[in-house]
Design a protein around this nucleic acid. Structure first.
Lengths: 133, 133
DNA sequence: CGGAATCCAGCAAGATACTG
DNA sequence: CAGTATCTTGCTGGATTCCG
Protein backbone atom coordinates (compact mmCIF):
# COMPACT_ATOMS: atom_id res chain seq x y z
CA UNK A 1 0.00 0.00 0.00
CA UNK A 2 1.24 3.43 -1.01
CA UNK A 3 1.79 4.88 2.46
CA UNK A 4 -0.43 7.90 1.95
CA UNK A 5 1.28 10.69 3.81
CA UNK A 6 -0.85 12.23 6.56
CA UNK A 7 -0.82 15.74 5.19
CA UNK A 8 -2.12 18.18 7.76
CA UNK A 9 -3.50 20.59 5.16
CA UNK A 10 -6.12 18.37 3.64
CA UNK A 11 -8.02 20.63 1.33
CA UNK A 12 -5.49 23.38 0.95
CA UNK A 13 -6.12 26.01 -1.63
CA UNK A 14 -6.43 29.73 -2.26
CA UNK A 15 -7.11 30.44 1.39
CA UNK A 16 -10.24 32.37 0.55
CA UNK A 17 -11.82 29.39 -1.19
CA UNK A 18 -11.63 26.85 1.62
CA UNK A 19 -12.65 29.24 4.34
CA UNK A 20 -12.98 27.16 7.44
CA UNK A 21 -12.04 23.92 5.73
CA UNK A 22 -8.33 23.62 6.41
CA UNK A 23 -7.22 24.12 10.01
CA UNK A 24 -3.66 24.93 8.99
CA UNK A 25 -4.76 27.69 6.67
CA UNK A 26 -7.14 28.93 9.30
CA UNK A 27 -4.41 29.52 11.82
CA UNK A 28 -1.82 30.65 9.32
CA UNK A 29 -4.14 33.21 7.87
CA UNK A 30 -4.41 34.74 11.31
CA UNK A 31 -0.81 35.12 12.22
CA UNK A 32 0.07 35.74 8.64
CA UNK A 33 -1.58 39.08 8.26
CA UNK A 34 0.17 42.19 9.28
CA UNK A 35 -1.43 43.11 12.58
CA UNK A 36 -3.47 40.33 14.15
CA UNK A 37 -0.62 38.71 16.03
CA UNK A 38 0.51 42.06 17.36
CA UNK A 39 -2.94 42.83 18.64
CA UNK A 40 -3.18 39.50 20.42
CA UNK A 41 0.20 40.09 22.01
CA UNK A 42 -0.87 43.53 23.10
CA UNK A 43 -3.99 42.20 24.76
CA UNK A 44 -1.95 39.80 26.83
CA UNK A 45 -1.62 41.81 30.01
CA UNK A 46 -5.05 43.38 30.11
CA UNK A 47 -8.17 44.14 28.13
CA UNK A 48 -7.95 47.35 26.16
CA UNK A 49 -10.17 49.91 24.59
CA UNK A 50 -10.07 50.70 20.92
CA UNK A 51 -8.07 53.87 21.26
CA UNK A 52 -5.67 52.28 23.71
CA UNK A 53 -4.95 49.55 21.17
CA UNK A 54 -4.59 52.18 18.52
CA UNK A 55 -1.89 53.83 20.56
CA UNK A 56 -0.26 50.60 21.68
CA UNK A 57 0.19 49.04 18.27
CA UNK A 58 2.55 51.34 16.41
CA UNK A 59 1.46 52.69 13.04
CA UNK A 60 -1.74 50.71 12.71
CA UNK A 61 -4.61 52.55 11.09
CA UNK A 62 -8.10 52.60 12.52
CA UNK A 63 -9.24 50.75 9.45
CA UNK A 64 -6.87 47.83 9.94
CA UNK A 65 -7.41 47.80 13.69
CA UNK A 66 -11.15 47.52 13.23
CA UNK A 67 -10.78 44.86 10.59
CA UNK A 68 -8.36 42.75 12.60
CA UNK A 69 -10.45 43.03 15.73
CA UNK A 70 -13.54 41.92 13.81
CA UNK A 71 -11.76 38.87 12.47
CA UNK A 72 -10.54 37.90 15.91
CA UNK A 73 -13.98 38.41 17.38
CA UNK A 74 -15.55 36.44 14.58
CA UNK A 75 -13.30 33.49 15.31
CA UNK A 76 -13.92 33.64 19.02
CA UNK A 77 -10.40 34.65 20.01
CA UNK A 78 -11.52 37.85 21.63
CA UNK A 79 -14.71 39.36 22.91
CA UNK A 80 -16.06 42.85 22.49
CA UNK A 81 -17.83 44.70 25.26
CA UNK A 82 -19.70 47.93 24.64
CA UNK A 83 -20.32 50.32 27.50
CA UNK A 84 -23.13 52.65 26.49
CA UNK A 85 -21.56 55.71 28.03
CA UNK A 86 -21.29 59.00 26.20
CA UNK A 87 -19.08 58.92 24.26
CA UNK A 88 -19.20 55.15 23.97
CA UNK A 89 -16.41 52.95 25.30
CA UNK A 90 -15.59 49.58 23.80
CA UNK A 91 -13.36 47.07 25.48
CA UNK A 92 -11.66 44.11 23.87
CA UNK A 93 -10.36 41.14 25.79
CA UNK A 94 -8.97 37.73 24.95
CA UNK A 95 -11.28 34.79 25.37
CA UNK A 96 -9.88 31.60 26.92
CA UNK A 97 -9.27 30.34 23.41
CA UNK A 98 -7.53 33.59 22.58
CA UNK A 99 -5.31 33.17 25.60
CA UNK A 100 -4.39 29.67 24.62
CA UNK A 101 -3.52 30.96 21.17
CA UNK A 102 -1.46 33.70 22.76
CA UNK A 103 0.73 31.13 24.47
CA UNK A 104 1.69 29.57 21.17
CA UNK A 105 2.31 32.98 19.73
CA UNK A 106 4.61 33.84 22.59
CA UNK A 107 6.61 30.67 22.22
CA UNK A 108 7.03 31.56 18.57
CA UNK A 109 8.16 35.05 19.47
CA UNK A 110 10.62 33.58 21.91
CA UNK A 111 12.00 31.37 19.16
CA UNK A 112 12.30 34.37 16.90
CA UNK A 113 14.26 36.31 19.46
CA UNK A 114 16.59 33.43 20.24
CA UNK A 115 17.32 32.66 16.62
CA UNK A 116 17.35 36.12 15.21
CA UNK A 117 21.11 36.48 15.37
CA UNK A 118 21.60 33.16 13.60
CA UNK A 119 19.15 34.14 10.90
CA UNK A 120 20.94 37.41 10.31
CA UNK A 121 24.25 35.62 10.03
CA UNK A 122 22.78 33.14 7.58
CA UNK A 123 21.52 36.00 5.48
CA UNK A 124 24.91 37.65 5.39
CA UNK A 125 26.52 34.40 4.32
CA UNK A 126 23.90 33.89 1.67
CA UNK A 127 24.35 37.35 0.23
CA UNK A 128 28.11 36.98 0.30
CA UNK A 129 27.91 33.68 -1.56
CA UNK A 130 25.74 35.19 -4.27
CA UNK A 131 27.27 38.63 -4.59
CA UNK A 132 30.81 37.93 -5.71
CA UNK A 133 30.37 37.45 -9.40
CA UNK B 1 8.35 57.01 35.45
CA UNK B 2 5.97 56.02 32.66
CA UNK B 3 6.40 52.25 32.81
CA UNK B 4 7.49 51.86 29.21
CA UNK B 5 5.88 48.63 28.05
CA UNK B 6 8.37 46.02 26.84
CA UNK B 7 6.98 45.74 23.32
CA UNK B 8 8.43 42.72 21.57
CA UNK B 9 8.25 44.35 18.14
CA UNK B 10 10.60 47.21 18.73
CA UNK B 11 11.01 48.78 15.33
CA UNK B 12 7.94 47.44 13.67
CA UNK B 13 7.02 48.80 10.31
CA UNK B 14 6.13 47.91 6.72
CA UNK B 15 7.89 44.58 6.99
CA UNK B 16 9.95 45.27 3.92
CA UNK B 17 11.51 48.35 5.46
CA UNK B 18 12.89 46.85 8.64
CA UNK B 19 14.17 43.69 7.04
CA UNK B 20 16.05 41.87 9.71
CA UNK B 21 15.38 44.48 12.35
CA UNK B 22 12.34 43.14 14.15
CA UNK B 23 12.43 39.49 15.23
CA UNK B 24 8.66 39.25 15.44
CA UNK B 25 8.20 40.46 11.90
CA UNK B 26 10.98 38.17 10.78
CA UNK B 27 9.23 35.07 11.99
CA UNK B 28 5.75 36.24 11.09
CA UNK B 29 6.81 37.03 7.56
CA UNK B 30 7.87 33.42 7.21
CA UNK B 31 4.82 31.61 8.39
CA UNK B 32 2.63 34.33 7.04
CA UNK B 33 3.21 33.74 3.38
CA UNK B 34 1.20 31.20 1.56
CA UNK B 35 3.59 28.29 1.17
CA UNK B 36 6.65 28.49 3.41
CA UNK B 37 5.12 26.82 6.42
CA UNK B 38 3.72 24.04 4.27
CA UNK B 39 7.12 23.35 2.78
CA UNK B 40 8.75 23.17 6.19
CA UNK B 41 6.07 20.77 7.36
CA UNK B 42 6.59 18.65 4.28
CA UNK B 43 10.32 18.42 4.90
CA UNK B 44 9.74 17.09 8.38
CA UNK B 45 10.05 13.39 7.73
CA UNK B 46 12.83 13.42 5.16
CA UNK B 47 14.79 15.60 2.78
CA UNK B 48 13.14 15.99 -0.58
CA UNK B 49 14.02 16.83 -4.12
CA UNK B 50 12.48 19.74 -5.95
CA UNK B 51 10.00 17.70 -7.92
CA UNK B 52 9.04 15.65 -4.90
CA UNK B 53 8.20 18.83 -3.05
CA UNK B 54 6.34 20.05 -6.06
CA UNK B 55 4.17 16.97 -5.94
CA UNK B 56 3.84 16.92 -2.17
CA UNK B 57 2.65 20.48 -1.74
CA UNK B 58 -0.65 20.67 -3.53
CA UNK B 59 -1.15 23.35 -6.15
CA UNK B 60 2.11 25.19 -5.61
CA UNK B 61 3.71 26.53 -8.76
CA UNK B 62 7.36 26.01 -9.57
CA UNK B 63 7.82 29.71 -9.32
CA UNK B 64 6.53 29.96 -5.77
CA UNK B 65 8.27 26.78 -4.73
CA UNK B 66 11.60 28.11 -5.91
CA UNK B 67 11.04 31.43 -4.28
CA UNK B 68 9.99 29.97 -0.94
CA UNK B 69 12.90 27.54 -0.93
CA UNK B 70 15.32 30.38 -1.63
CA UNK B 71 13.98 32.41 1.25
CA UNK B 72 14.26 29.49 3.63
CA UNK B 73 17.77 28.75 2.45
CA UNK B 74 18.71 32.38 2.78
CA UNK B 75 17.60 32.42 6.40
CA UNK B 76 19.41 29.21 7.21
CA UNK B 77 16.30 27.13 7.85
CA UNK B 78 17.11 24.65 5.14
CA UNK B 79 20.08 23.64 3.07
CA UNK B 80 20.32 22.90 -0.63
CA UNK B 81 22.47 20.09 -1.97
CA UNK B 82 23.18 19.74 -5.67
CA UNK B 83 24.15 16.35 -7.09
CA UNK B 84 25.84 16.95 -10.44
CA UNK B 85 24.21 13.98 -12.10
CA UNK B 86 22.60 14.18 -15.49
CA UNK B 87 19.92 15.38 -15.27
CA UNK B 88 20.78 17.25 -12.07
CA UNK B 89 19.23 16.34 -8.75
CA UNK B 90 18.77 18.87 -5.96
CA UNK B 91 17.90 17.92 -2.44
CA UNK B 92 16.50 20.18 0.26
CA UNK B 93 16.70 19.37 3.93
CA UNK B 94 15.95 21.19 7.17
CA UNK B 95 18.91 22.53 9.10
CA UNK B 96 18.93 22.11 12.88
CA UNK B 97 17.49 25.60 13.12
CA UNK B 98 14.86 24.62 10.59
CA UNK B 99 13.95 21.62 12.68
CA UNK B 100 13.63 23.67 15.81
CA UNK B 101 11.35 26.01 13.89
CA UNK B 102 9.37 23.04 12.68
CA UNK B 103 8.58 22.05 16.24
CA UNK B 104 6.95 25.37 16.93
CA UNK B 105 5.09 25.14 13.69
CA UNK B 106 3.77 21.72 14.62
CA UNK B 107 2.58 22.85 18.00
CA UNK B 108 0.74 25.62 16.22
CA UNK B 109 -0.80 23.15 13.80
CA UNK B 110 -1.85 21.00 16.72
CA UNK B 111 -3.52 23.99 18.29
CA UNK B 112 -5.28 24.72 15.03
CA UNK B 113 -6.64 21.21 14.79
CA UNK B 114 -7.79 21.14 18.39
CA UNK B 115 -9.55 24.44 18.20
CA UNK B 116 -10.86 24.31 14.70
CA UNK B 117 -14.31 23.12 15.72
CA UNK B 118 -14.61 25.90 18.28
CA UNK B 119 -13.53 28.46 15.71
CA UNK B 120 -16.11 27.26 13.24
CA UNK B 121 -18.81 27.44 15.88
CA UNK B 122 -17.75 30.94 16.80
CA UNK B 123 -18.01 31.94 13.16
CA UNK B 124 -21.49 30.56 12.84
CA UNK B 125 -22.59 32.42 15.94
CA UNK B 126 -21.02 35.60 14.65
CA UNK B 127 -22.70 35.36 11.27
CA UNK B 128 -26.00 34.53 12.89
CA UNK B 129 -25.75 37.57 15.16
CA UNK B 130 -25.09 39.86 12.22
CA UNK B 131 -27.36 38.37 9.60
CA UNK B 132 -30.80 38.75 11.05
CA UNK B 133 -31.52 42.33 10.21
C1' DC C 1 -14.88 57.67 20.98
C1' DG C 2 -15.28 54.00 17.82
C1' DG C 3 -15.95 53.13 13.92
C1' DA C 4 -17.73 52.80 8.31
C1' DA C 5 -17.05 54.05 3.35
C1' DT C 6 -14.32 54.97 -0.45
C1' DC C 7 -10.28 55.31 -3.29
C1' DC C 8 -5.87 53.78 -4.59
C1' DA C 9 -0.88 51.86 -4.71
C1' DG C 10 2.08 47.95 -4.22
C1' DC C 11 3.16 43.50 -3.80
C1' DA C 12 2.12 38.46 -3.64
C1' DA C 13 1.18 35.13 -6.41
C1' DG C 14 -1.01 32.69 -10.74
C1' DA C 15 -0.33 31.56 -15.73
C1' DT C 16 2.57 30.72 -19.31
C1' DA C 17 6.71 30.00 -21.88
C1' DC C 18 11.52 29.08 -22.16
C1' DT C 19 16.39 26.95 -20.65
C1' DG C 20 20.85 24.30 -19.20
C1' DC D 1 15.14 17.75 -13.61
C1' DA D 2 15.27 22.10 -11.70
C1' DG D 3 14.76 25.96 -12.42
C1' DT D 4 14.27 31.39 -14.88
C1' DA D 5 11.70 35.18 -17.21
C1' DT D 6 7.80 37.87 -18.19
C1' DC D 7 3.23 39.33 -17.94
C1' DT D 8 -0.93 40.00 -15.39
C1' DT D 9 -4.21 40.09 -11.66
C1' DG D 10 -6.30 40.11 -7.04
C1' DC D 11 -5.93 41.16 -2.61
C1' DT D 12 -3.75 43.66 1.47
C1' DG D 13 -3.35 47.47 3.53
C1' DG D 14 -2.49 52.81 3.59
C1' DA D 15 -4.73 57.51 3.28
C1' DT D 16 -8.56 60.13 3.66
C1' DT D 17 -13.17 61.45 4.68
C1' DC D 18 -17.50 61.06 7.07
C1' DC D 19 -20.91 59.42 10.93
C1' DG D 20 -23.71 58.40 15.57
Amino acid sequence: MPQTAPTPWATLGPASINQGQCPVRDVLDHIGDKWTALIVLTLKSSPSRFSALHRAVPDISKRMLTQSLRNLERDGLLSRHVFPTKPPAVEYRLTPMGQSFLRHLESLVAWAEENHPAVREARLRFEAANDEG
